[in-house]
Amino acid sequence: MAEQAQENSSLSAVVADVAAGVALALDGGRDSSALSGVLAQDDPLALAAIRVLGADVLAPYALRAGGGPGTTTDTGTDMDSGMAHRRTARASGVGAGPAARGARADGEVVRKALAAYPPGADASEVSLWSYRGLVEASRAYLPAGQGGPESPAGAGDRAAGPAAVAGWLQADPWPQLAHRASQLAALSLPGLAPALATGLAARTEDLSRGFVRAVRRRDWLQAAGIGRWLARVPDVPDTLGLDTGLVYVLRMSGGDARVALHTAIARRFHGRGAR
């Protein structure tokens, strides 16, 4: 019991470190977006942390690939959009020099993380989604040949196609919907899960209510995760006050690195949270 608690606590610390490093890279405070520079590659906790954060560990690559403010929202299928981003990444000049070496190392560490922590047969839907998101992100954002495994064990494909999306996206009452959306916040990066994004965009008011509930519960991580999805859509209710809300959540969380990463992504990709 005690060992388990200690392990969790250590993992939380590593997750926070990685999240802080990614956020710093997003804000331009780090020369390289190299994930591998942030952590000790052989540390099993580091690999676990990558699985916890999922696609977000590659967010700086997505930003370079053109995912900043002004990016059109995704439409079409996962595959179409993923391909589009892959092309963008390949054409954006990250294929040579130090950046390319960093990308190669990052691809390797992501591959290790995916191999070390594949979703088990009884994995939760969130775990499956997160795995799939990381697979897709490594394919879409990393330069050619640096991506993750081509669907190891088929787990990514099993995770959730558009058909699997449909059920809870439409049926869940708003508190459950918003909670789950927050757990899947990393999938809100451009091009990763357009069907999910489209489904959530159809329930903007419900997500907004979830944001309200999360802030009132002082669940800053949940609030920030929901806020990221809301940052993507143009029709967030004015009276929600999303921009001030994201700043409020960031400040009230007292330096929570995962909250800071969520809010940094909302700001850097969608221009929301600090004007």
Binding site: W174, P175, E205, S208, R209, G210, V212, R213, R216, R217, P237, T239
Partner: peptide, 16 residues
């Protein structure tokens, strides 16, 4: 309109 939008969140929150 403001009330219709946010009442469900407030009600759920204070019921909790």
């Amino acid at each position: 309109g403001y009330l219709r939008l946010w009442l469900p969140a407030w009600t759920a929150s204070w019921l909790e």
